[in-house]
Design a protein around this nucleic acid. Structure first.
Lengths: 331, 331
DNA sequence: CCAGATAATGTTACCGGTAACAGTGCTAAT
DNA sequence: ATTAGCACTGTTACCGGTAACATTATCTGG
């Protein structure tokens, strides 16, 4: 026999009123007479009342929660995004329901179903690739959806991000401009964005009459993958003079390997990463990278979502927050 | 006029049955006649039914969700822990409700109240310092609680972690054993564990008749803080021959600064960190660090919590998962 | 051929807040 | 004195599943 947790009724019993009055008192204290108000508050305190979202949730008002789906929680990129989201949702009294799906649309579907079963008021998705079922669910749920991390051409509803293809194009163009002509692309885990960046890389190379060469690893991104890929390059493409990595982890890992093999960076090998994470920006030489506005993306996505929830008609469908090419000291 | 999302009743209407039958069909298909079963499933499909946790939540059964409170989402440590937790909760059909509190017990209280209002079935806390109100809420909520990241002497219910004081003591002892006698402690953001590690550091120094010196930064942990603190040491304690950092970020930042100033590591300056993150373990020389079982902590915490929820009496209150001293190449 | 088991479905009530509406008692103005 | 008006409190119903119980149809064995 476990004692159940206190309800409004328990407070009401204590002060000799109805739960309706108690409810009112807690939501609009001034609408209840002073004496009663004091007794209600003190009873709530001593009894240890904890508000309960469940009824609200059931009567379809609002769950005051936002579902956030990210491919990975350990990826620093999404940690930054989440911080940005929270910066807006927390003050607004919204709670985040976080789930990750390991870059798999099928798992995304599972997680999405789970989130929707909690009646989230809106969702933020980190990809544009969704299963037909996911699309169905989102449609029938009838809630605001924001897709982040790219300027998707045809967002479900709204998108916030930057142009991955163009960012890669710009970075590789810069490398070529600085005299690199045998730049190799390093990709890991073939997700959407890795492909887009490869596309931008290829476009830049071809625009300058150069031959694109891409190396991939199936493993998840890590420093050691970067190191392994660099070794492979030294072996298979000994005349390569630069690498453009799909993210900073790979780039830093490759740089560490260069250090070990006493390969001069950037003289012998230029290295560029993506995202501009702390490690790369703190080390010497500073890592060349595409600095992406991760936190700003989270903030903008949350802001947009909350605005939509407040019924404010959203003007634009795609919000491009851009990026910045940081040449650092490795080009 | 927005169309509301489909309910069991909608399916029931479609197939000419009651929602009770539909409910049964979805939960135990074999208890419904074959023909009806098929019609129900196909109706559910075409109508786009999404399960709804709200009623369950309200009728106090189970929310099938676990609240997880971490001080920071960007801190790699907790990302790892969360992955460990998910590894257990996800297959069990539990959803995580994540919140962070920026190392502030007051914010922890706020977040906790929010989590409890969603009727989470259990909570995992990353600290042992709680406000009186938080303690009250946990008590009245009457749900399982696991405190992680240390072997707290007197856990609220159960604790999973490692001994921060002893870990620091062991690492510093190792540094002293290797001939370092003027080791300095670098702490950031004075949270509980930073203090515990300082305590272990002091104990080790004093045990060898050495004078402990601690430097602190109020800022949050980062590579640049590590670099800044190292500069300060070179200035204020020019004869220091080693640093023990409260975490790897600070240690790696300090190492980068040594590189810039061409200070030989470890000959002139030994560096040790805490947690054994990827960067430190991937770089050359490998960073000396206390390798903590972060993911295992998450797994064990989730496992314990789920076991308690299943009514299995838990034997031990404190689970010590230990740590490992990695000497790397910086000692 | 019927009692009684068995399978399949229906009925009712409940969880805990709150919207909507309905009092109740008092003051103030006609 | 009557009544409108206001401040305060109470009553009822509802949200959507499902436990518990009731009912009906079907079947089986003596």
């Amino acid at each position: 026999m476990k004692k159940k947790r206190p309800t409004l009724q328990d407070i009401a019993d204590q002060v000799g009123a109805t739960k309706m009055t108690v409810s009112r008192c807690l939501r609009a204290p001034e609408s209840v007479s002073e004496g009663l108000r004091e007794r209600i508050f003190s009873a709530a305190e001593t009894i240890g009342y904890i508000p309960n979202r469940a009824p609200d949730l059931l009567s379809r008002a609002t769950s005051r929660s936002i579902g956030v789906l990210v491919p990975s929680l350990t990826n620093q990129v999404f940690a930054d995004v989440i911080v940005g989201i929270e910066a807006y949702t927390e003050p607004a009294g919204y709670h985040l329901m976080l789930a990750h799906y390991g870059y798999s649309p099928e798992l995304e579907e599972r997680s999405l179903a789970s989130l929707l079963s909690y009646n989230v008021d809106g969702v933020i998705l980190s990809d544009h690739q969704h299963t037909p079922r996911s699309l169905r669910m989102l449609e029938t749920a009838g809630i605001p959806v924001v897709e982040i991390m790219d300027t998707y051409q045809a967002p479900l509803q709204q998108a916030v991000g930057y142009d991955n293809v163009r960012a890669a194009f710009d970075m590789v163009s810069e490398m070529i401009r600085l005299g690199r002509h045998r730049v190799i692309y390093l990709g890991v885990r073939l997700d959407e964005r890795t492909r887009q960046r490869e596309q931008g890389y290829c476009q830049a190379m071809e625009a300058h009459g150069l031959t694109p060469v891409a190396l991939h690893s199936r493993q998840r991104s890590s420093y050691s993958v970067g190191a392994a890929l660099l070794k492979q390059i030294l072996n298979d493409y000994p005349d390569a003079d630069g690498i453009f990595c799909t993210n900073d982890d790979v780039a830093v890992g490759a740089y560490f390997e260069c250090q070990r093999q006493e390969i001069d960076v950037p003289d012998r090998m230029a290295i560029a990463g993506f995202h501009g994470h702390d490690v790369g920006q703190a080390m010497t030489p500073r890592l060349a990278s595409v600095i992406t506005p991760r936190q700003a993306i989270g903030e903008a996505a949350a802001k947009t979502l909350l605005a939509t929830l407040q019924g404010e008609a959203s003007t634009e469908r795609v919000l491009d927050l851009g990026y910045r090419i940081e040449s650092g000291g490795t080009l």
